[in-house]
């Protein structure tokens, strides 16, 4: 099967849900216009990133009218979008949802909330507790939100669960200007997404935002990686853009024939060794 992916590298306004939904709606229209079957938005595209105490004010329940509107839009094109989700027990999650054919097909609550350096997510947000692949009309997908991607186990689990495409919704701040090779954080992410695609023989659809919040820039550079780790398309640095690329199963199949890494992956061995490590850590009280 073959499908066209659009990455909507947008510039959300901090704390302005209705304005951002309008930006998202316009990008959805643009993606439809460009012939895309799926459009991926950045992390927290509905709200902006450095929310701090705004988190409860911008949070949406999964059954909110705002999300109902996105569901309607998803009848024309599949959509992955990021928001603050409020659960029934009043917890707030950095959530990505995947909408298709008028339904929410999957919800991923960010597991790894960075709380170091310039990040402070765990002060305001609750952690997700699972990585699950899910079926879409384009095959089996997995979704990660930004920092999740930096944990090898996250992408690994999704691939073991059968995902052949990994979506990564990001709000990655740009930093590191020492090199002539470009922005430090951009180079690090390019290595990460390419290596993840190669390790797991998966496509990676990475969508990062742009714009500034309180002097912090978000660098964009959204990218579609093929299962061999090559770049199919990469959006501009620091500028709004909607990029598209055609994705086909032939490439995935050829890569998995060429390097059948996943076929040979020994899941039993991995689970056995992880159980042993867990047991030893418990008994030794080593953490």
């Amino acid at each position: 099967m073959e499908f066209i992916v659009a990455l909507a590298q947008i510039r959300p306004k901090l704390g302005c849900v209705s304005d951002n939904l309008a930006i998202i709606e316009a990008s959805v229209a643009q993606a439809v216009e460009s012939g895309a079957d799926l459009v991926v938005f950045p992390e927290l595209s509905v709200t902006g990133y450095f929310l701090k105490d705004l988190v409860p004010e911008v949070a949406l329940r999964i059954d909110s009218p705002e999300i109902a509107k996105l569901r309607v839009l998803s009848r024309r094109i599949s959509i992955a979008v990021g928001l603050v989700e409020e659960s029934a027990d009043c917890r707030f999650f950095n959530t990505a949802i995947y909408l298709e054919e008028g339904e929410i097909k999957h919800r991923h609550r960010k597991v790894y909330l960075p709380t170091y350096g310039l990040f402070d997510e765990q002060r305001y947000l609750a952690c997700g507790d699972r990585f699950r692949a899910f079926d879409t009309r384009f095959g089996r997908f997995g979704m990660l939100v930004c920092e999740d991607m930096w944990h090898l186990s996250a992408g690994y689990t999704l691939a073991m669960d059968g995902a052949t495409t990994i979506l990564c919704l990001s709000s990655s701040p740009g930093r590191g200007v020492a090199s002539n090779d470009g922005l430090g954080s951009a180079r690090a992410w390019q290595r990460l997404t390419s290596t993840t695609a190669m390790f797991l023989s998966c496509r990676v659809l990475f969508c990062n935002r742009v714009g500034f919040e309180d002097g912090v820039n978000f660098w964009g550079g959204s990218e579609i990686l093929t299962p061999s780790g090559d770049s199919a398309v990469r959006a501009k640095l620091l500028e709004e853009e909607l990029v598209t690329a055609r994705v086909d199963d032939g490439e995935l199949r050829r890569e998995r024939i060429f390097a059948p890494l996943l076929r040979d992956e020994n899941l039993d061995l991995t689970i056995r060794e992880l159980r042993r490590i867990e047991k030893e850590r418990r008994s030794a009280h080593v953490w």
């Binding site: 901090l14 704390g15 302005c16 701090k52 309180d214």
Partner: peptide, 8 residues
């Protein structure tokens, strides 16, 4: 705690 760019 709010960012200065609150609502911008």
């Amino acid at each position: 705690r709010y960012s200065r760019d609150w609502g911008k």
